[in-house]
């Protein structure tokens, strides 16, 4: 039993560390894209590399967590749910990395008229991911708190949609921007919005697992 206790504590730490990667990645994502729209490309590229590294590390941690849960037969009742939460959360990290890489490859043109809105969108996206991480942490530590964080995620995701849609409208109404660019910008705004969508998906699943545990 001492061995199981040791493994339990290690696993708790691993999950906490795994979730820390999301916080870090989300902050680097926000700062990196903020640098990008201010044309500080070399710093943005540094951030992009960091996020990519975090994603790889996250994958390794995820596999390790799944392995321990299965081999040590821990939390038999919630095992499936926890693994699904971890897998779902991973899609957020993947999306963040994907967006950063696409920005680095395609280098889309961001007009001045939407730069402020873009900063706002990034802030909301970051808040959304942070709240998703808090909700996930609370699922493990204090289940009654999960609901509050899920509510916050819903709110920020909605804000992301509003700001993103406004940005797209503004871009398409701007006659000075080339049609090709318009489509590309809209596509990139949508990609950023998808980060918060993924976070919301995680929370949707999470709320079902909470009901299961509370029932």
């Amino acid at each position: 039993m001492i061995n199981v206790w040791k493994k339990t504590k290690e696993l708790e730490n691993k999950i906490d560390q795994y979730l820390d990667f999301f916080i870090e990645a989300s902050l680097h994502f926000k700062e990196g894209l903020s640098l990008y729209i201010r044309n500080v490309i070399d710093k943005f590229e540094e951030k992009s590399v960091i996020v990519d590294g975090l994603e790889s590390k996250g994958d390794a941690f995820r596999r390790e967590i799944e392995n321990v849960i299965y081999t040590e037969l821990l939390i038999p009742e919630s095992r499936g749910d926890v693994l699904a939460i971890i897998e779902n959360a991973d899609s957020v990290l993947n999306k963040i990395t994907e967006v950063m890489i696409e920005f680095a490859i395609q280098r889309p043109y961001i007009p001045d008229s939407i730069k402020d809105s873009f900063e706002t969108l990034l802030n909301y996206t970051d808040r959304c991911v942070q709240e998703m991480v808090s909700a996930t942490r609370m699922y493990f530590k204090n289940i009654q708190e999960v609901r509050n964080h899920i509510k916050a995620v819903m709110h920020y995701e909605h804000e992301c949609d509003e700001v993103g849609n406004e940005m797209k409208k503004k871009v398409f109404l701007d006659a000075t921007i080339d049609s090709c660019c318009k489509i590309q910008i809209a596509q990139f705004v949508k990609m950023v919005q998808e980060v918060s969508d993924k976070a919301e998906d995680v929370c949707d699943r999470l709320s079902i697992y909470v009901i299961k545990r509370m029932a």
């Binding site: 039993m1 339990t8 696993l11 939390i75 493990f140 204090n142 289940i143 509370m214």
Partner: peptide
């Protein structure tokens, strides 16, 4: 139990210990 502020895995461990 739903008010207990313990990690899911710690609760799991205590349950195992209690069962044994």
């Amino acid at each position: 139990i739903i008010r207990v502020k313990l990690n899911l895995f710690t609760i799991d461990y205590y349950f195992r210990l209690a069962f044994i």
